[in-house]
């Protein structure tokens, strides 16, 4: 894992990718810092952290598009996959390399609150908490980017799809507000999920029996829940979509609340996408 990590980290700075990422990130961060802190003489630094999160939409695809797609395009994945390394350690090495570049950039921005502290009092712990949230949010976005990069051998497609996925997460909270919360729509959505899962199983295994069983069990569970607790389906769509709402949990950090649950959430979120990446690579070798 360490070898892959080191190679990826070097590769970021052997090509313009690392510099573009850091440069753009620091530029946006600097502009916001100048406008909301320096020019207004305000020590309220955490607002900078909450307003620059949009920059992830643009820079995360730059950081992750190459990771897996370039390996399969250049056929260097043959080297990695025929070496005694496990797929998990390859994926982790790449993920941590991208996260390390991100972390270095974030650490550079730590200079801004230090500058502020010379001229006034800053809420140190609030900023530390804010940075933890900021870092975890970025790391979760990177895991999505890495996953998408493993699906294609074209960097541009990986970048565009990653951008789309992040944009979807971005507007998710806004979408959630307009979604119906009544019982019927909840049940329809749950049934669609069960059928969708069965269809997915069918397309991957081509086994009609297993997928039919999954669909029947899924629908059975839905019926069971309906007869025992029918209020479960009130707002079911909203609750499901909220699982994916990375930004809602980020608000806690910005309010100065540092609790365990969003931290666990972000780490789990990244872990799930890393797991999916490993599965995609393993799957490709089987088909």
């Amino acid at each position: 894992m360490l070898a892959v990590f080191k190679r990826e980290l070097k590769a970021y700075f052997a090509s313009p990718t690392g510099y573009i990422f850091m440069g753009f990130f620091l530029l946006i961060c600097g502009i916001f810092f100048a406008f909301s802190n320096l020019l207004t003489a305000s020590p309220e630094y955490i607002s900078v952290l909450s307003s620059i999160t949009f920059v992830f939409l643009i820079v995360v695809p730059v950081l992750t598009m190459r990771l897996m797609s370039e390996e399969s395009r250049q056929k260097t994945d043959q080297l990695l996959l025929t070496s005694p390394l496990s797929v998990t350690s390859i994926v982790l090495g790449k993920y941590f390399a991208a996260v390390a570049v991100f972390l270095i950039t974030v650490l550079i921005t730590c200079l801004y609150p230090v500058i502020l502290s010379f001229f006034g009092t800053i809420a140190v712990w609030e900023i530390v908490g804010g940075y933890i949230g900021f870092f975890l949010l970025g790391a979760a976005f990177i895991s999505i980017g890495l996953f998408i990069s493993s699906l294609t051998d074209n960097q541009v497609i990986a970048a565009v799809v990653t951008f789309g996925a992040l944009l979807f997460i971005w507007v998710l909270d806004w979408i959630i507000q307009g979604i119906p919360t009544d019982k019927i729509s909840g049940i329809v959505f749950a049934c669609a999920l069960a059928v969708g899962a069965a269809a997915l199983v069918y397309f991957t295994t081509r086994n009609i029996f297993v997928s039919a069983t999954i669909a029947i069990i899924g629908l059975g569970i839905i019926a069971g829940i309906y007869f025992t607790n029918q209020y479960f389906f009130d707002g079911f769509i909203v609750r499901t979509l909220e699982w994916f709402s990375l930004l809602k949990r980020y608000e806690n950090f910005m309010m100065g609340i540092l609790s365990l649950s969003p931290i666990v959430y972000y780490i789990t979120f990244s872990a799930v996408f890393l797991f999916l990446t490993v599965r995609v690579i393993e799957k490709r070798r089987w088909s």
Partner: peptide
């Protein structure tokens, strides 16, 4: 058949 080389190294 195509040597798996990293061009940037």
């Amino acid at each position: 058949e195509f040597p798996p080389l990293y061009m940037d190294m």
